[in-house]
Write a protein that binds this DNA or RNA. Structure first.
Lengths: 119, 119
DNA sequence: CTCTCATTTCGTTATTTAGCTAATTGACAA
DNA sequence: TTGTCAATTAGCTAAATAACGAAATGAGAG
């Protein structure tokens, strides 16, 4: 049962739930894109991603200086269905989708530069 | 999204997850039976049940001096499916089922009496 | 009404956790 | 090799939460 408890706990946080929802729509997102989405400090986002990764529901891939995250095959199918049927239709998540559309349209290079300026 | 976050948070606790699993098999259980299952103080169990109730995934019914809890119709179907497919098959939950079989076989009257003696 | 007793509420304490900044890591570029 | 830069780790603080015992609630029994 620890496995399932760890998964539920990983998703029992607003930021991490938003990330999961984002990854249901976007396949793969890098940390700086998630920083942009959540508007949190990079270390905080990184920490959240570690929690999701420890629960084995996301996996990461390095590409150059960027780390991309995606949902893993261990993300429970029924949970995915629930999120698609319910969570993705909420206004907060819909707003995230709209916002993400803008984020993914500019490349990470540009995104990171603007994040540094936004001190 | 708050609705779904509240549900996930309600289940993101070992005791509450065990209660949900128990209620998937037993339809209706009273507080003293849950106290017996979880081996926690009655106020603690009551508090857990309040969390589940606030998330609208369980509902209560008073019968004499006892309060019985059951899953509500708002317990998400896909979550129920996941729990049945996965959680209920874990050894900890299987053990809970065995234990519960013994608990439900004696009436609450007797159960509460023995709980008081077990100070 | 008064007593009993299952359950809940209150008040406190210990633990967990989400957030930040500063420092470290590790990959690319020069 | 050296510098740059995205990401992570470390260390800290503040807030959330799970546990308990004591007290309150409220329904049945006498």
């Amino acid at each position: 049962m620890e496995t399932y408890l760890t998964i539920i706990k990983a998703l029992a946080d607003k930021s991490r739930m938003r990330v999961a929802a984002a990854l249901l729509c976007y396949e793969e997102l890098c940390v700086c894109q998630l920083v942009e989405l959540l508007q949190l400090a990079a270390p905080t986002v990184s920490r959240h991603m570690t929690v999701l990764q420890n629960a084995r529901i996301v996996q990461s891939r390095k590409k150059g200086r960027w780390v991309y995250y995606r949902l893993s095959g261990k993300f429970p199918e029924q949970l995915e269905q629930w999120f698609k049927d319910a969570l993705l239709k909420t206004k907060e998540i819909q707003a995230d989708q709209v916002f993400l559309a803008g984020v993914v349209s500019c490349d990470p290079e540009e995104l990171c530069r603007s994040q540094k300026e936004r001190v």
